[in-house]
Design a protein around this nucleic acid. Structure first.
Length: 370
DNA sequence: GTAAGCTGGCACCTCGACGA
DNA sequence: TCGTCGAGGTGCCAGCTTAC
């Protein structure tokens, strides 16, 4: 199986020649349809990211595409390259470069608004996300990307749509591709950004609703100090951000696993049973880490991690609160903070009501009966 | 008035998924 | 295995707009 760098390098080097040959049963086209999916899937499994995803790639259907692409979807918010927001490798027409981009599907805007207005709309939404996402790394920038020759006339609006749909990106020059490890690291950071964006959507099941919300520019988000509500395009949901920040969360969980093992150094049998169940069994158990007390009784540890101080509030669901009450004797909440500097840990045992106050952050709206 | 550019509609192509 | 259908993409063409 080829790695990410090899896949991208092969495409950059061979695509223009391949375009001169028949599209049907083309070797590069077949390679491009299968190999990126295979590699990225194995990468996600290896890294332990937990989200529902799909991977697609295209060099065109029936004809060679001007801009070949590889797309990684979070299927909660996007299932097609034509709509929603996803992570895309977009190859420049002249194959001089490829962008890893947090990208919007252009066809949605095209079909909804037509080419001219659609371009204005998609640009507005890109700008919105640029302002409202934290740039977690200096790797990415929010400059416009250049996939096509601006002096050339194109029959299709797709390439320009891809350019305008870019929210943030990193450019890889064909003559100076980074090593595979750097590409994987960038992909991990981009997944982190996508998950942050997902947490800020108005409705993750309806991207159309979120787009309309952004385009309306009448955004009610933050609770004002005087219990009034103000209109602002900025959301500051620290809790949601914390929840969505998979990388930070995984780092925190791994930190706790190592910490717990260090506490069980005298009992190798118990030490070997410490398990990151959020990865091995999924999120449904109500806790992240299975560990043990020295007497062998189980500890069910929920890990809450932030990059900032311990005073930053964190998100906890109603189910998690309920689980803490029901599993009072075994339940622990480990609060990991300053994870990117010198990680620190605070531990809370049993019912969380004695340690924290809780504020509701979401409401379920039920239609009133007439 | 005319030519060039832009846009949307439509036709057509291939591929992959799915069901009979 | 074969037929059907949807997805994703491009080319052609007519109609509208704009610049000279």
């Amino acid at each position: 199986m080829d790695d990410l760098k090899t896949i991208i390098s092969k495409t950059l080097n061979q695509y223009q020649n391949a375009k001169q040959t028949s599209f049907k049963n083309n070797r590069l086209a077949n390679y491009f349809r299968t190999e990126p999916k295979r590699y990225i899937e194995s990468y996600i499994k290896r890294t332990g990211f937990h989200f529902n995803y799909d991977i697609k790639s295209s060099v065109g259907n029936g004809r060679w595409a001007i801009i070949p692409w590889i797309v990684l979807f979070d299927t909660d918010i996007s299932t097609s390259a034509t709509e929603g927001i996803d992570i895309a490798y977009l190859f420049a027409e002249d194959m001089s470069k490829v962008y890893l981009s947090l990208a919007q599907g252009w066809t949605y805007y095209h079909n909804e608004f037509g080419t001219k207005i659609g371009q204005t709309k998609i640009k507005a939404v890109s700008n919105y996300w640029r302002k409202n996402l934290k740039l977690t790394s200096n790797t990415f920038n929010t400059k416009e990307i250049h996939l096509i020759n601006p002096l050339k006339r194109y029959r299709t609006s797709l390439p320009r749509g891809y350019e305008l749909g870019n929210i943030m990106s990193v450019e890889y020059n064909a003559n100076n591709l980074p090593d595979n490890q750097k590409m994987e690291d960038d992909l991990a950071l981009m997944i982190q950004s996508l998950e942050e964006l997902k947490s800020k959507l108005i409705n993750t099941k309806d991207i159309d609703l979120s787009n309309k919300y952004i385009l309306s520019k009448s955004v009610i988000t933050n609770k004002h100090k005087n219990n009034e509500y103000k209109k602002t395009p900025t959301k500051c949901d620290y809790d949601q951000q914390s929840k969505s920040n998979k990388i930070t969360g995984l780092k925190g969980e791994r930190y706790v696993v190592e910490y717990e093992k260090s506490q069980l150094q005298g009992n190798k049998k118990l030490q070997s049973k410490v398990e990151q169940v959020s990865v091995t069994q999924g999120d449904g158990l109500g806790y992240d880490i299975l560990s043990f007390n020295p007497d062998g009784s189980e500890k069910h540890i929920e890990v809450k991690t932030t990059t900032d101080s311990e005073n930053i509030p964190f998100y906890i669901s109603q189910n998690e609160r309920q689980y803490a009450k029901e599993d009072n004797s075994s339940y622990w909440l480990y609060r990991v903070y300053d994870i990117n500097r010198e990680a620190k840990l605070e531990k809370y045992h049993g019912n969380l009501e004695q340690y924290f106050s809780f504020e509701p952050t979401d409401y379920l709206a039920l239609k009133k009966e007439n």
